[in-house]
Amino acid sequence: MTNHKLAKKINIIIQRHVEFYKQEKYILEKIANRKLKLDIDKANYELEMVKDNRNEKDVRDSYNILNDFLIDNLTRKINLLKTFKDSTVFEPQLIAVDVNLETLKDINIKNSVFNKVGVIKVKDFTTTKNNYNAIIITLISSIIGMIFGCLIVLIRYVFKKQ
Rank of each mutant, 00 (worst) to 15 (best):
L101T: 03
L101A: 04
L80C: 04
T128A: 10
E102G: 14
T75A: 03
K123N: 14
V119L: 09
P92A: 07
N67D: 08
A96C: 06
N108I: 10
S112Q: 12
I120E: 13
F84L: 10
T103V: 08
L74Q: 00
G118R: 12
V119D: 05
I137K: 15
I71F: 00
N79S: 14
T126A: 06
L94I: 15
D68R: 05
L104T: 05
L81G: 01
T103A: 13
L81P: 01
L74C: 01
K121W: 03
I109M: 09
N130R: 08
T75N: 02
I107Y: 06
K121E: 12
D98R: 04
I137W: 13
L74R: 00
V97I: 10
D86T: 03
D68Q: 08
T128N: 06
I78S: 00
D72I: 03
G118Y: 13
Q93Y: 09
V119Y: 07
A96M: 08
I78C: 02
V89A: 07
K116N: 15
K82G: 06
A96K: 14
Y132K: 15
N131G: 04
F125L: 14
P92E: 06
F125R: 12
N131Q: 13
I135T: 14
S87D: 11
N133H: 11
N130I: 06
V119C: 03
D86M: 02
L70Y: 07
